[in-house]
């Protein structure tokens, strides 16, 4: 029963993807929707991503310093550990998990409300493909804007670590600066950005799926928004493992 339902949902998800990636009826109107979504889903996330990155960077540095408090381990190792934690895991994965809550619930509840108030039906009656018009610009906005957001997060996370070194006094700032420049593997950035693109696609399409197929009223919109966040978070965690296995091992 559970398996059948799962397979059916997966099938519906792929059918929705098929409807989503269709030639637009009018490029100008889709461009307008893309600009709206870039602002709503991308630009409006810069604030929360910046604050979280700055503070988590600082905390990672303090905790690493606390755990590496050994005279045999050079202090600049703390800088290396902070950089790797932020670039490899915190910025691409944890920030995307946070975005699945912020952006995913927004997408699911917006589309769900449009469904129950017949706005999606209205688009269909006008001859517009509602899946393409409502979902495609969101996917494009997230897939292209999130890598930029994650690069900002990496920079601010590492900067937060520097502030911790400078103001908390857990290590000398010069050691921290030496650490973040030592043994750097540029492929880690590529790896992080590949993960970001995949996670962004998951967040938008999974949330859109739950919003687009809402049946009922306000309560069901809320339930589906929660399901969207839970499902996209699980999908991100699984994809994270698979991508890490493929790209790093």
């Amino acid at each position: 029963m559970f398996l059948t339902e799962g397979i059916r949902s997966l099938g519906k998800y792929f059918i929705l993807l098929g409807k989503t990636f269709h030639k637009p009826e009018n490029w100008r109107e889709y461009r307008k929707a893309l600009v709206r979504d870039l602002e709503l889903l991308g630009l409006n996330s810069i604030g929360i991503v910046s604050i979280i990155s700055l503070f988590v960077g600082a905390v990672v540095t303090i905790q690493t310093a606390y755990n590496l408090d050994d005279p045999l381990v050079p202090d600049y190792y703390i800088g290396i550990a902070t950089r790797e934690s932020i670039i490899l895991e915190f910025s691409p994965t944890i920030i995307c998990l946070i975005l699945s809550g912020k952006v995913g619930s927004n997408i699911a509840s917006t589309l769900g409300s449009m469904r129950v108030s017949e706005q999606i039906d209205a688009l269909e009656v006008m001859g517009i493909n509602p899946a393409a018009y409502l979902i495609m610009p969101k996917v494009i906005a997230m897939v292209f804007f999130n890598p930029l957001l994650i690069v900002i997060s990496m920079f601010l996370g590492i900067l937060g670590g520097y502030f911790a070194a400078e103001f908390a006094g857990v290590l000398a700032p010069v050691d921290y600066l030496q650490g973040i420049q030592s043994d750097f593997n540029p492929f880690y950035i590529t790896y992080a950005l590949i993960k970001t693109v995949v996670f962004s696609f998951i967040i938008t399409t999974v949330s859109a799926y739950y919003g687009f197929y809402v049946k009922g009223g306000a309560i069901e919109v809320g339930i589906n928004a929660t399901k969207a966040v839970v499902s996209s978070s699980i999908a991100i965690i699984v994809a994270n493992y698979v991508l890490t296995q493929i790209l790093l091992v």
Partner: peptide
Amino acid sequence: RTEMGMVFQGNALFDSLTIEENVIFALGM
């Protein structure tokens, strides 16, 4: 469908668009 007009029970106006944008939506498309 471009030859159809429909008034829905709950109006189904697009909340994020102004009245003018609602009216010309299909024309723009």
